[in-house]
Design a protein around this nucleic acid. Structure first.
Lengths: 117, 117
DNA sequence: TGAGTATCTGTTCATATGTACAGATATAAA
DNA sequence: TTTATATCTGTACATATGAACAGATACTCA
C-alpha cells in the first residue's frame, strides 16, 4: 500500500504528495474550519456553549455560571455569534442566548469521546 | 419553559443558574475539550490532519503538501502527538505519520457541515 | 424626557502562539 | 567510526488572544 521509493529531493514521495494536494481542500476552507475549531478552543467559550446546551440564558446568567466578567462573556459571545454558533432573542433589556444549531452538540459529543477515552 | 422572573441581583435567574452549574462538566473536562479543539484550530494543523486522512505521510511529504518549513511541521506534529491525534511508525530514517483514530474524521465532517452550509 | 439596568465596545496589557533559523539527535550505510 | 539524511528541539520574534476596566448603547418605565 505504501510506496517505499526513496525520496528524490530530500524524501518526498512525489506521487503521494501530488495526490494529497489534489484532495486537499482549499485554503479558504482550511481557514474557515480552523476558525470554527479555534472558537471552540477556549475554556470560557466551551463553558458558554455547554451551558447553552441545557437552556437559553442571558448574559449575566452566563457570567454567574462561568465566573468571569460580563465584559468577557460579551466579548466571547460576539465571537460565537460571528461564527454562527449562538443566536439570541431580545426580551426587553434582556438578551437570551441559545445555540444556533445542533452541530455544536455533535462536535462536543465527538470531542468528549476523544478526551475521555 | 423559560422563567421570565426579573433578576434578583442584576439579572440573574437563580434557579436556572444553579441547574446549569450542576450540569456543567468539571473545569478539567472543559480545559481538555478546549485543548482538543484548539489543536484543531490552526490552518496548518487542519491541513496536516486532512492530508493524513488520505494516507500516511512522512514529515517532508507534509512539508511539500502544506508549504511551510519542516521545522514548523515537526513542531505542529508534536502538538498533535501530545493530544493523541496522530501516531507514527518508523521505517529507517523516515517517520510515517497517520491519524491516531477516527474521531478526527468525524469532527472534521461535522465541522465542514457547519462551515459549508 | 430622565433614570436605571442589561449588554456592548474600545482600549490596554500580560500571556500565548506560530514560524523560521540554527543546531542537536537518530538511523543507515560505507 | 565517519558521513549523510530525516526529523526534532531550543530560541527569538512578530503577532494573536483573552481578560478587565471604563465608557457607550439600547431598552424600559416613570
Amino acid at each position: 500500500m505504501v510506496e517505499l521509493d526513496k525520496c528524490d529531493i530530500h524524501c518526498i514521495h512525489d506521487k503521494a504528495v501530488q495526490a494529497v494536494r489534489q484532495a486537499l481542500f482549499s485554503e479558504d476552507v482550511a481557514v474557515s474550519l480552523a476558525e470554527l475549531f479555534k472558537a471552540l478552543g477556549d475554556p470560557t467559550r466551551v463553558k458558554i456553549l455547554f451551558s447553552l446546551m441545557t437552556r437559553e440564558l442571558c448574559v449575566c446568567d452566563l457570567t454567574a455560571v462561568i465566573g468571569v466578567s460580563e465584559s468577557a462573556v460579551s466579548h466571547q459571545l460576539k465571537i460565537l455569534r460571528t461564527l454562527r454558533l449562538v443566536k439570541f432573542r431580545r426580551e426587553g433589556k434582556i438578551l437570551y442566548y441559545s445555540l444556533a444549531d445542533d452541530h455544536i452538540e455533535k462536535l462536543f459529543a465527538q470531542g468528549l469521546e476523544h478526551v475521555t477515552e
